[in-house]
Simulated assay, not measured.
Amino acid sequence: MKRYELNEAQWAKIAALLPGKANDPGRTGSDNRLFVNGCLWVLRSGAHWCDLPERYGRWKTVHRRFSRWCHSGVWERVFDTLTADRDNTYLMLDSTIVRAHQQAATGKGGPKDQALGRSRGGLTTKVHMLADTLGRPLRFRITAGQAHDITAAADLLKGQKAKAVLADKAYDSNDLRELIAGMKAEAVIPSKRNRKVFIPHDKAAYKHRNQIERCFGRMKHFRRFATRYDRRASHFTGFVHLAAAMIWLR
């Protein structure tokens, strides 16, 4: 097994979730494992697609197929299936800034409508994440880097159930607290300094929030997550879900 590639146990968990099985319409994906390993090589190394080792096939063919799977939501469906065995005692919200390489803003149309924006770090993208009690990713939303953390919170929590929702001060808003109360969950969110009446929170439970920060740290071992090289937001989102799937496959 080459570096970055799936082992037998990992492959067994996702093989049946990929298109191209014998009972699927269209062409059979007999090389699915080789293709996924090629995508993982690009994700982990951060290299250009044209530098893909020859053992994975022609890079243009692999890139074209990766793009198709991004647009059809294959990576997201695989990730969603893996998250079925979750621990919903706590749900945690957080976000991270991803610095965008200059090549992410090149091409026709530039950064328009591709989740790219300007923040303190320059050209950036923000990844909003919902995680379970163990800090494993459950859901993502991708926005321009200057977007406030709380903008994606309601969408991330939609349809979720938990005993408590943990988040930092950036998520301290009355609307979000009401939404969490509507889930019949406790809001474990410290109050902002400008709040006239401080709302107490469970400090013991809040200590668990470091799990989501550690998850972001693990995901940033994947260089195409740590730095955005992809011009299209759909391609970057595909890599995000592939990296998250690998967290669940460990």
Rank of each mutant, 00 (worst) to 15 (best):
T89I: 09
Y90D: 06
Q103A: 12
H101P: 11
Q103M: 10
H63Q: 13
V62Y: 09
D94A: 11
Q102C: 12
R58C: 05
T61Q: 14
V98F: 05
K60L: 08
W75Y: 11
T81Q: 10
D87V: 09
S67C: 05
D80W: 04
L82S: 08
W59I: 03
H71D: 14
L91R: 11
D85S: 09
Y90H: 14
R64N: 13
R64A: 13
R64T: 11
H71I: 12
S95F: 07
M92E: 06
R99Q: 13
A100Q: 13
Y56F: 15
R86T: 13
M92T: 08
T96C: 13
R55H: 06
F66A: 01
R99V: 14
L91P: 05
L91C: 12
A100S: 15
Q103P: 01
Y90Q: 08
L82P: 00
R64V: 00
N88W: 08
P53I: 03
W59F: 01
V62W: 08
T89A: 12
R86H: 06
P53S: 05
G57M: 02
A104Y: 10
W69N: 03
F66V: 00
R55K: 08
V78E: 07
L93Q: 07
R55V: 04
E54N: 01
R99W: 03
N88A: 15
D94N: 11
A104T: 10
D80I: 09
A84D: 07
C70S: 07
I97Q: 02
E54C: 00
S72F: 04
L52M: 00
R99F: 07
S67E: 03
